[in-house]
Design a protein around this nucleic acid. Sequence first.
DNA 1: TAGGCCATCTGGTCCT
DNA 2: AGGACCAGATGGCCTA
Length: 144
Amino acid sequence: ISNMDLEDVTAKLLSEWKSHESAFGENLESLQSSSPESAMDSMCSSPEMCYSSDNQEIQDFGFSGRKVTPAAQKQSKTKMSTKRRMKASEREKMRMRSLAKALHQLRDYLPPDYSKTGQPLTKIQTLKYTIEYINKLSDILSRA
DNA sequence: TAGGCCATCTGGTCCT
DNA sequence: AGGACCAGATGGCCTA
């Protein structure tokens, strides 16, 4: 990526900034008003993890080797109700989707030079290249 | 087929 | 008490 390209992109970004600066806020609003249908479309994508009273029983055995603090042990006795757990799962799903959406948007701000293979950048690549890109833009601005 | 990436579920923890 | 955030686990999909 040449400096000329960067300067072009910098100028473009600066000119577009005003029209984009509220983009995330708007998207947050749109996310909040997203239809429940779309939220439920992938419900139970993994059958083993579908909710059921049986499943609740099975998970009480705690097969993972996660550390359990005394406070956690105490709290684990008061298990979340199935209804509350379902609500929490749904919120978490929405939260992760909004994160993924934000990453997709972030990807669009990166120059195409960063995806040389033609394949879309992965999440981690997007984050790393964004850091790199911001550093380059900052450098250009500091020298201007 | 192994490994990378991703979406989802879940329990723990912190905060309001 | 309930929501937000986080990290671990798991399974599906895709590619080399």
